[in-house]
């Protein structure tokens, strides 16, 4: 249903009607599937890289200037690529890993590749907020580097890590929509195919609504979680 042929009221009614949502709901499923796996990998890889960046810095636990600079440069390089270029670049690589260069799994790889550099920097920022004093106290008690990482740096920074992960997750969601137009399916695909190509504005409105709701939910849950932890620690 297009605004060219129907009134705004009719389009809105249709946008929230059952016919459109029969199409939207499976697309939400696809989108959430991609977002979920992209988020899991981004979280794990991003935290690892963020810790490596922090620890190998000159004032870190294990200063390694050369690896630190190389990793930093690679991350900056990847971050400077526009998302859409990143997706195009990753498609042949996805073919090597999952056997094809289209579909949801290929899209997950592209999403991870473009979100990891951002999240790694966010993790580095979260760790930089940790007071040096806590790490020194741990050192002074004779802790090894692994214990400092897992018993001090990680638990101490959990609220900030959650916060920055929420930011990354929202970016992943918007990128999923973008990747949708490269054959990944999901809400982005629907929005482009129906909303843009066929002027079905009711579908477009429904997709946008679904995306807004998902982002809001993610933001709400992230904020709530971080808030709960801070409250438990009496840090509010």
């Amino acid at each position: 249903m297009s605004l060219r042929t129907h009134s705004l009221y009719e389009v809105l009614v249709s946008a929230f009607g059952p016919d459109v949502w029969k199409m939207i709901i499976p697309a939400i499923g696809d989108t959430l599937y991609m977002v979920f796996w992209a988020a899991v990998f981004t979280l794990i890889i991003g935290i690892c890289l963020g810790f490596i960046l922090t620890i190998t810095a000159d004032d870190g636990l294990l200063p390694l200037p050369l690896p630190h600079r190389v990793l930093g440069a690679v991350i900056n390089g990847l971050r400077s690529l526009p998302e859409i270029i990143m997706i195009i670049l990753m498609l042949p690589i996805a073919r090597v890993i999952v056997g094809k260069s289209y579909g949801t799994n290929a899209c997950i790889i592209a999403l991870v590749a473009s979100c990891v550099p951002m999240y790694a920097r966010l993790v580095q920022g979260a760790l930089a907020e940790l007071s040096k004093g806590k790490i020194e106290a741990a050192k002074a008690m004779g802790s090894g580097i692994w214990r400092i990482i897992f018993s001090v740096m990680l638990p101490e920074s959990v609220p900030t890590l959650i916060h920055s992960f929420t930011v990354a997750l929202v970016a992943i969601i918007s990128m999923t929509a973008l990747a949708g137009s490269f054959g990944a399916g999901g809400l982005g695909d629907i929005a482009v195919r129906y909303g843009f190509n066929r002027f079905q504005h009711d579908v477009l409105i429904a997709t946008v609504t679904a995306l807004v709701l998902i982002v809001q939910a993610v933001q709400f849950i992230g904020d709530l979680l971080a808030h709960m932890i801070l409250r438990k620690r009496h840090m509010l």
Binding site: G133, K134, G142, E156, V158
Partner: peptide
Amino acid sequence: KKERRSIGMIFQAFNLFDSK
């Protein structure tokens, strides 16, 4: 690392672990 376990230290900023 071992020897530091027999040298305690306290700080102006306390440096306690907020997560514990």
